[in-house]
Design a protein around this nucleic acid. Sequence first.
DNA 1: TCAAAAGTGTTATCCTTACACCCATGT
DNA 2: ACATGGGTGTAAGGATAACACTTTTGA
Lengths: 307, 307
Amino acid sequence: MVGTIAAMTGSGIAVTLDAVIVAVSDDRPRILTVEGPEGERRIPSGPLDPDADKTLERALRRWIAEQAGIEIGYAEQLYTFGDRNRAHRGRDDPRRLSVAYLALVREEATAPGAGWLDWYDLFPWEDHRTGSPAIIAEVILPALRQWAGDDAERRRVAMMFGRDPWDGIRVLDRYELLYEAGLVAEAAVDRGEVPPPDVVGTAMALDHRRIAATGLGRLRGKLTYRPLVFELLPELFTLSELQRTVETLAGVRLHKQNFRRLVERNGLVEGTGKRTASTGGRPAELFRFRRAVVDERPRPGLGVPYR
Amino acid sequence: MVGTIAAMTGSGIAVTLDAVIVAVSDDRPRILTVEGPEGERRIPSGPLDPDADKTLERALRRWIAEQAGIEIGYAEQLYTFGDRNRAHRGRDDPRRLSVAYLALVREEATAPGAGWLDWYDLFPWEDHRTGSPAIIAEVILPALRQWAGDDAERRRVAMMFGRDPWDGIRVLDRYELLYEAGLVAEAAVDRGEVPPPDVVGTAMALDHRRIAATGLGRLRGKLTYRPLVFELLPELFTLSELQRTVETLAGVRLHKQNFRRLVERNGLVEGTGKRTASTGGRPAELFRFRRAVVDERPRPGLGVPYR
DNA sequence: TCAAAAGTGTTATCCTTACACCCATGT
DNA sequence: ACATGGGTGTAAGGATAACACTTTTGA
């Protein structure tokens, strides 16, 4: 079957749809993972059935619903990965193309075999909500400084990990730097070696952690100009919950009043007269997303103004 | 998850690498097109040979060099198109996946059969350098106002074509609106009908104009935070040339002094003592791109600060 | 001397950032 | 009463947008 098509076109290639599925709970960003045959963490991956679904996104939604039991809300294409070393180091297996999507969900119920992994377990250096993580000063920077061989590399290290304020958006660049420097387990695995012990973050199968990094970076960037946070929040929420969710994703603390002014100025939410049974303090007003903003403002969003 | 493996080998799909290749000359943005068998305009498309090239980008560069005789400078992945109606309206031809790239080049020499098309021939409503194009007020807005059936659609029309200042980044959204409203020829062609006479812009084959719109939008957006303009300029250039190139791509006029302040503040260029043989006026100093900026500033770029 | 393009000074305004403080509820 | 989180006033600093003006060349 495959051979037929390959003969027709000259390039018959196995295509999968991979999904970075994100939720936020307990002030943690979570990513849905499944367990591979050898216990390794993978991002869920499904088939692109050439005959069944008319669009890629529809195919994605369908297999996620079937396999993980999740109805995803928002989905956008992330990137298409097709480099050779993706498939294990085998020389002559068929090339694989992975069209990766970023999906946002509210619910947390998952099918058996799947589970939510804290994004900051994958990238512990990315969470700056309580200051710069110790792992940067204690492990990453020393190792990178030793690795850096010339001035350009030293500047790159400073750019990625030595900046103040922290530039949250560059998740992928930082992961790639750590990969090049051999500080993530995947770097060794891809060379067929055993990872050294001083490696940082939880590893994933193949290049899945790279895909996850692409997703987090995209999400952080897009927060500022698209109302994506609301895909991760319940219908009604307090302004503090909204702010905490943004902070959770952005990985930095935000100034309360400035955040509220931003929300206000952009007309992103509308109050419902209701208030919460407070979690230990003055009760807060409940708000909901004002869907009309997308027709009013060209780039409605929240988050850090990356510059 | 076991099903995944079976699915991966069960879906052999024809994959092509398509390229939106951009150059700027004579204050016009150009896109490289080739002529299809029936004289229709296409963006160049090449095979992804599963065995030859290790990365997608390398495969792209190779066939562009072979077929169009062009060495591309900068390339980035745009989007992967795989929706069903892409392949002609045939019901049972194999699904095709098109991984589209955006490429920037300086040179204009092309192989026979290929040629440069003015981007604003494809999207005449996108060039606001000399004010809002007449076609918007005279053709597009009247037609869209008639098309709009409810309030949401009217707001969308106002958002896309009625905003002041012009929001240059939304090229794809505007194209899609025009497509939905039947104002571009492709809308009729895709339904197997003959396009009406009052259609706007030069049509392309299949969804190639949509891909081109994706490319222009991406380019406009990215100009502001990546030094992409310099990929389109010669090694040495005057500040006015730099500004005009940005204006050409952004489709709007910029304030001279503020532009220069921006260039200055970001340290994007460095003067060479040299001056040009002027083009009719006071001779201008020649500048070159300061490559070091990418290690200094997190988001170095020029262009309109889309907000 | 005049047209054409290069290049500069200055100001009003808005957004960002940061400070500090008051308010309403449960225990 | 006090701890806890909700909610607001105000001001300094910097970036943006817009004004007009001077300088240097070729014809």
